[in-house]
C-alpha cells in the first residue's frame, strides 16, 4: 500500500485566502471544504499519485498566506522539489504578488525546484480579474509552469500536481536532479535519516532503490539551514 518509487516534497505558497488549503483538501479528499479556517504556521498532507507509470508519493506542505509569519518559512522551503504558487483569479493583487513569492522560492529553496503558477477559483468566471493569457505569458517569461484550477469543482487540481511531478521526473531522468539516498548528507542529523523522510525534496522509494539506484552525491545543492 505504501510502496512508492519516489517521494517529492511540495510546498504551497501564495497570498492569504487564495485557496491554498482548499487545493490541498481538494487533492487529497476529492472534496471542497466549506468554511475552512486560515492556516496558522503550516499544514501538511500526503498522497500517492501515478506519474508516467511511477508511483510518486507527494508530501505537501501548506503554508499560512499571511506570511508576515515568516518564522516557519525557511525550514519549510528546505528541500522542496516542487512549489505551487497560488493566486486568486478574481483578485489582481494576489496575482501581482506572484512575483514576490517566486522570488522567495528561488531564494530560499533548492536551485532545481520546479515551480508552477496556479490561478485558483476558475469557477468564478464573472468575477475574473486576471486573464488566462496574461498569466500564461507571465509564467512563460519567468520560466515556470502555469495552470488554472478550481478547488471548488476540483477542476485542474490533480493536473497541477501531476504536471509538476512530471517535470521533476524528467529532470531526474535527464540526470539534472539530485536524488537523496539519505546517507549522511545533512550535517545536523547525519546518519539518522531514513530515506523515506522529508529531509530533502526528492527521495528514491524502496522499490527503485533496488533497481536503479546510482548513488547520487550528497546534496551539495540542497538548501540547508
Amino acid at each position: 500500500m505504501d510502496a512508492y518509487d519516489y517521494l517529492f516534497k511540495f510546498i504551497l505558497i501564495g497570498d492569504s485566502a487564495v485557496g491554498k488549503s482548499c487545493i490541498l483538501t481538494s487533492l487529497i479528499e476529492n472534496k471542497f471544504k466549506k468554511g475552512s479556517s486560515h492556516t496558522i504556521g503550516v499544514e501538511f498532507g500526503s498522497k500517492i499519485i501515478n506519474v508516467s507509470g511511477k508511483r510518486v508519493k507527494l508530501q505537501i506542505w501548506d503554508t499560512a498566506g499571511q506570511e508576515r509569519y515568516r518564522s516557519v518559512t525557511r525550514s519549510y522551503y528546505r528541500g522542496a522539489a516542487g512549489a505551487l504558487i497560488v493566486y486568486d483569479i478574481t483578485n489582481r493583487d494576489t496575482y501581482h504578488h506572484l512575483i514576490n513569492w517566486l522570488a522567495d522560492a528561488r531564494t530560499l529553496a533548492r536551485a532545481d525546484i520546479s515551480i508552477i503558477a496556479v490561478g485558483n477559483k476558475s469557477d468564478l468566471k464573472d468575477k475574473r480579474a486576471v486573464t488566462f493569457l496574461e498569466a500564461s505569458r507571465c509564467a512563460q517569461e519567468n520560466e515556470i509552469l502555469f495552470l488554472e484550477t478550481s478547488a471548488l469543482t476540483g477542476e485542474g487540481v490533480e493536473e497541477v500536481f501531476v504536471k509538476v511531478a512530471k517535470m521533476i521526473l524528467n529532470k531526474i531522468e535527464d540526470g539534472m536532479q539530485h536524488i537523496e539516498e539519505g546517507l549522511g548528507y545533512h550535517g545536523l542529523f547525519s546518519g539518522l535519516i531514513d530515506p523515506a523522510t522529508m529531509m530533502s525534496g526528492v527521495h528514491a522509494g524502496a522499490r527503485s532503490l533496488l533497481n536503479e539506484a546510482s548513488p547520487a552525491e550528497p546534496a551539495s545543492r540542497c538548501i540547508s539551514c
Binding site: 487533492l27 487529497i28 479528499e29 499544514e43 500526503s46 498522497k47 500517492i48 499519485i49 501515478n50
Partner: peptide
C-alpha cells in the same frame, strides 16, 4: 483531518 493517501490514494488515480 486531512487524510493521507491511505483512503484517498486509491480514488484519484
Amino acid at each position: 483531518g486531512l487524510p493521507g493517501e491511505g483512503v484517498n490514494g486509491t480514488r484519484g488515480e
